[in-house]
Amino acid sequence: MRWVEDRLRELADTDDQYRKFNARVVATADPATMLGVRVPRLRRLAREVSRSDGRIAFLAELPHHWYEEYLVHAFVLNETREVAQATRLLDALLPFVDNWCVCDALNPRAFHDGQAMGGRTAEALVPLAKRWMASDHTYTRRFGISILMRDLLGDDFDPTQLRQAIAADNGEHYVRMMIAWYLAEALVSHRDDALAAIALPELDPQLRRMAIRKGIESLRVPAETKDTLRRLRG
């Protein structure tokens, strides 16, 4: 919508340094689509959009032109409280996502609400994660893995989920980075299962090294576990 674009231009940094920095960090997004708006300002704009009469129209307006429009879209979508609606909105948006930053910004409130899930979080989310992890689109697949990490490492964890994530490996860097991140996070709360997954013979050696590095770099992984990871690294 035009008013959103106008607001983005108003909120952009007056110099070009942040836009250039962001272009380097995000890497896969087209720098020509970046205006250079900082995330806190985008979150404030998302609240404006959410409260406006144009919320539904904005979420339906795909594809967007600006990188920052996609981030605002993600933040507005995240406020969705119904699983079915969040799923429909995600299915519409994900094919247009072309970078890790927008992908990782997606974190719908509905997926954390036990009441919205009817008390059956795993039953609701595992099939969705599997479907998204089977996508040929890099960032849809990455998002599916993120569901296992963000929403299912607590009481709804099952060791088979680690193998599901590993099976999503298609050799693409941004997919592997999410799998490695997930395995490293699993080390915190499910140490033995995560170590067993990292040691699986069928795990690609590069992915194993990535997961080990993430685990060793993590401030949340205990020193004893890091020693085990170093031995696995060889």
Rank of each mutant, 00 (worst) to 15 (best):
A74Y: 03
F75V: 02
F75Q: 03
V76M: 04
N78T: 10
T80A: 07
A86Q: 01
A86C: 02
A86P: 00
V97P: 02
D98I: 07
C101R: 08
L106G: 03
F111C: 03
F111D: 01
H112M: 02
M117Q: 14
G119T: 11
G119D: 09
R120C: 11
T121Q: 09
T121H: 02
P127F: 05
P127S: 08
R131L: 06
R131V: 02
W132G: 00
M133V: 05
M133Q: 11
R141D: 03
I145A: 07
I147C: 02
I147T: 00
I147P: 00
I147R: 03
L148M: 08
R150M: 06
L152V: 02
D155H: 10
D158K: 12
P159G: 13
L162Y: 12
L162D: 08
L162G: 05
L162Q: 10
R163C: 11
R163S: 15
A165M: 15
A165G: 15
N170F: 01
N170M: 09
G171H: 10
M178A: 14
W181F: 08
Y182N: 04
A184T: 07
E185T: 11
E185P: 03
A186K: 04
A186M: 12
V188M: 06
H190C: 11
D193I: 13
A194L: 12
L195S: 12
A196N: 11
A199L: 14
L200R: 15
L200G: 10
L203H: 14
